[in-house]
C-alpha cells in the first residue's frame, strides 16, 4: 500500500484488511492518485485511473439525462473478480475509489468497509488544502505527477 498523504494510510489499511480487496486505487477526480494498493505497474494505474474516472463521468451523465440522482456506486461482477467504483465528496474535492476484489470476499463487504473508510477519511482530513478545480487538461499531468511520487519515478 502506498499513499501520497499519511492521513489516508490508516483508513485505507483498515479497509484493505477488512474487505480483503486485491487492488485499490484512490484518486481525485482531477486524476491525482492519492493512494494505491496491489498495483505493481504504473501503466496499470494510469489505465485504471483514466477508465474509472471516465466510467463515473458517463454514468453521472446518464443519470442527468434520465433525470435521476447520480449513482452512488457501480459494480461489475466477473467470474473470479469483481470491480467496485464509487465517487465521494471530501473537503479536498471529489474523490474516486476503485476496488478490485476476489472470491474470498463479497461486494457487500467491500461496500460496507468502503463506506466506513470514507467516514474515517472525512473525519481525518486535514483542514488545509481546498478542493482543486477539475479541468480535463489537468487530468493527465496530475496523474503522471502522482504516479511519479508513488513509484519514485
Amino acid at each position: 500500500m502506498r499513499a501520497l498523504e499519511p492521513w489516508v494510510e490508516q483508513p485505507l489499511m483498515t479497509f484493505l484488511t477488512e474487505s480483503e480487496a486485491r487492488l485499490t486505487l484512490l484518486m481525485t477526480s482531477a486524476g491525482q492518485v492519492v493512494a494505491q494498493h496491489g498495483f505493481t505497474r504504473a501503466v496499470d494505474i494510469m489505465s485504471a485511473a483514466a477508465l474509472g474516472a471516465a466510467i463515473l463521468s458517463s454514468t453521472e451523465e446518464m443519470a442527468r439525462v434520465l433525470g435521476v440522482r447520480p449513482f452512488r456506486a457501480l459494480s461489475h461482477q466477473g467470474e473470479s473478480h469483481g470491480i467496485f467504483l464509487s465517487a465521494f465528496e471530501t473537503p479536498r474535492g471529489r474523490w474516486i475509489g476503485l476496488v478490485v476484489y476476489g472470491q474470498d470476499t463479497s461486494l457487500g463487504l467491500v461496500r460496507l468497509f468502503f463506506d466506513r473508510m470514507v467516514d474515517e477519511l472525512m473525519a481525518g482530513v486535514p483542514a488545509e488544502g481546498g478542493p482543486k478545480q477539475v479541468l480535463a487538461q489537468n487530468f493527465e499531468s496530475e496523474l503522471h505527477s502522482s504516479l511519479r511520487a508513488l513509484f519514485g519515478r
Binding site: S106, L107, G108, D115
Partner: peptide, 23 residues
C-alpha cells in the same frame, strides 16, 4: 454478494452490515 434483497428491520438495525457480515 452479501447484499440485501428484501428486509424488515427495526429502526437502528444496520441492514447492509448485517447482510454482508452474516453472509
Amino acid at each position: 454478494d452479501g447484499l440485501v434483497v428484501a428486509e424488515s428491520l427495526m429502526e437502528g438495525i444496520p441492514g447492509d452490515a448485517v447482510a454482508a457480515l452474516a453472509a
